[in-house]
Amino acid sequence: SRSVIRSIIKSSKLNIDHKDYLLDLLNDVKGSKDLKEFHKMLTAILA
Rank of each mutant, 00 (worst) to 15 (best):
S1V: 14
S1K: 12
S1A: 12
S1H: 14
S1R: 13
S3W: 08
S3V: 09
S3P: 05
S3F: 08
S3E: 15
S3G: 12
V4W: 09
V4K: 11
V4D: 09
V4A: 13
V4E: 14
I5A: 04
I5L: 14
I5K: 00
I5E: 02
R6Y: 07
R6S: 10
R6I: 08
R6W: 04
R6A: 13
S7M: 13
S7V: 09
S7K: 15
I8W: 05
I8V: 06
I8S: 04
I8A: 07
I9N: 00
I9D: 00
I9W: 01
I9M: 01
I9F: 03
I9R: 02
K10T: 13
K10M: 15
K10E: 12
K10F: 07
S11R: 10
S11A: 13
S11H: 13
S12E: 01
S12H: 02
S12D: 02
S12P: 01
S12R: 01
S12N: 01
S12Y: 02
K13W: 11
K13P: 09
K13T: 11
K13A: 11
L14D: 02
L14P: 00
L14E: 00
L14M: 04
N15I: 05
N15E: 06
N15F: 06
N15S: 15
I16E: 15
I16R: 14
D17T: 10
D17C: 08
H18S: 08
H18T: 15
H18P: 02
H18R: 09
H18C: 10
K19R: 05
K19D: 00
K19C: 01
K19E: 02
D20N: 15
D20Q: 15
D20K: 13
D20H: 15
D20M: 15
D20W: 10
D20G: 13
Y21P: 01
Y21S: 06
L22S: 00
L22R: 00
L22E: 00
L22K: 00
L23V: 04
L23G: 00
D24G: 13
D24C: 12
D24E: 13
D24A: 15
L25K: 11
L25H: 03
L26Y: 04
L26H: 01
L26I: 03
N27Y: 06
N27V: 08
N27S: 09
D28R: 14
D28W: 05
D28N: 14
D28C: 08
V29L: 07
V29M: 08
V29A: 07
V29N: 03
K30V: 10
K30W: 07
K30P: 04
K30H: 12
G31W: 07
G31Y: 07
S32H: 12
S32N: 12
S32K: 12
S32I: 09
S32F: 07
K33V: 07
K33C: 04
K33S: 06
K33L: 07
D34Q: 15
D34N: 13
D34H: 12
L35R: 03
L35S: 02
L35M: 08
K36D: 09
K36R: 12
E37Q: 12
E37S: 11
E37C: 05
E37K: 15
E37T: 11
F38A: 01
F38C: 02
F38V: 02
F38T: 02
H39R: 12
H39L: 14
H39I: 12
H39S: 08
H39V: 15
K40L: 12
K40N: 09
K40H: 10
K40Q: 10
K40Y: 07
K40D: 08
K40M: 08
K40S: 11
M41I: 07
M41V: 05
M41H: 06
M41F: 09
L42Q: 00
L42E: 00
L42W: 04
T43G: 09
A44S: 13
A44K: 14
A44Y: 07
I45R: 02
I45D: 02
I45M: 09
I45W: 10
L46T: 03
L46D: 01
L46A: 01
A47C: 06
